[in-house]
């Protein structure tokens, strides 16, 4: 069984996590999302999309559900896994001071879950001040350092977020670019064909490659660590020099190479932001590193 993908949405109080969640719930992605939130306080569902609502669950007509998780997040995670039918994608809203890696780590540990990244929401104009706050600064900056993708809110134009560059080592998206977020974080890069024909101007590019030769796993890990900026996700399988098959999952800076549970094609697929990277650049990178071991 393939694991249920889990994304953690992190960010300090007031950064805009709930706004992002409202958009994800309503966006036209065709996925049955399950979103665990701290409370329904600011969850705002268009009446036309609302299927039912009770004290701890909101169900939408598009198949998405939003649940409150109370004070025990891991209990809620276990409940989500026991839910039938399973959703397509699980999203967990971390509390304003949580270390998102402590939550997302469960997706790496639990065989029934799959790590799909940490998205940290940053209030652009507030970031520098919060980061310098002696009480809360270290925890706020840590959320950015742990992120696989950063979503910036409340910035106008192309202005850079003061202080963000020194903490962020991953892609930064604008919160209004919900489409790119959905494409990068929730879409399955192996779903063919990419890009789909009904999206004339996709924000992402797809890349795929048959891997025929045995690859040294350390070299692969090293290569993936230094892949072109903008290539956000890579997944698939490779064979090592002995012929053993390994699964590869890359999200942001998280790289997982684990023994494959069954034989399969040795193919890698990738997805990246079209503004930041081209398939030619990815091909070039791959051709330099995928030499026979």
């Amino acid at each position: 069984m393939t694991g249920l993908p889990m994304t953690v949405i992190s960010g300090y109080l007031g950064a805009g996590k709930t706004t992002l969640i409202n958009r994800l719930l309503a966006a036209d992605h065709g996925l049955k999302l399950m979103i665990l939130v701290n409370d329904f306080g600011a969850i705002n569902i268009d009446e036309g999309l609302l299927a039912s609502k009770d004290e701890d669950t909101i169900a939408l007509t598009n198949g998405c559900v939003c649940c409150t998780m109370g004070a025990d997040l891991f209990l809620a995670l276990a409940d989500a896994l026991d839910r039938s039918p399973r959703p397509d994608h699980l999203i967990v809203e971390a509390s304003g001071v949580s270390d998102p890696a402590r939550i997302a780590n469960a997706a790496l540990a639990e065989p029934d879950l799959r790590y799909a990244g940490i998205v940290t929401v940053v209030d652009g104009p507030q970031y520098e001040g919060l980061g310098a706050d002696p009480l809360i600064g270290p925890q706020v900056r840590d959320q950015v350092k742990k992120a696989d993708l950063i979503v910036v809110t409340k910035m106008t134009g192309d202005a850079q977020v003061p202080g963000l560059a020194e903490d962020a080592r991953v892609e930064v998206l604008d919160a209004d670019d919900t489409r790119a977020l959905v494409d990068l974080v929730f879409a399955d890069p192996s779903a063919a064909p990419l890009p789909s024909s009904d999206m004339p101007h996709p924000s992402y590019i797809g890349w795929s490659c048959q891997v025929s030769t045995g690859i040294d796993l350390e070299a692969l890990r090293e290569g993936l660590t230094h892949r072109p900026a903008g290539l956000f996700r890579v997944k698939g399988s490779v064979a090592d020099p002995s012929g053993a098959i390994w699964d590869v999952q890359v999200v942001g800076h998280q790289i997982e190479i684990t023994p494959a549970t069954d034989a399969r094609d040795t193919t890698l697929v990738g997805i990246g932001l079209s503004e930041r990277v081209s398939t030619d650049e990815i091909d070039h990178w791959w051709s330099r590193m995928s030499l026979p071991a």
Binding site: L77, A78, R102, A104
Partner: peptide, 11 residues
């Protein structure tokens, strides 16, 4: 160490 790593065992 910590809940995430303990979670698969606890389940």
């Amino acid at each position: 160490q910590e809940m995430a790593a303990m979670f698969p065992i606890m389940r």
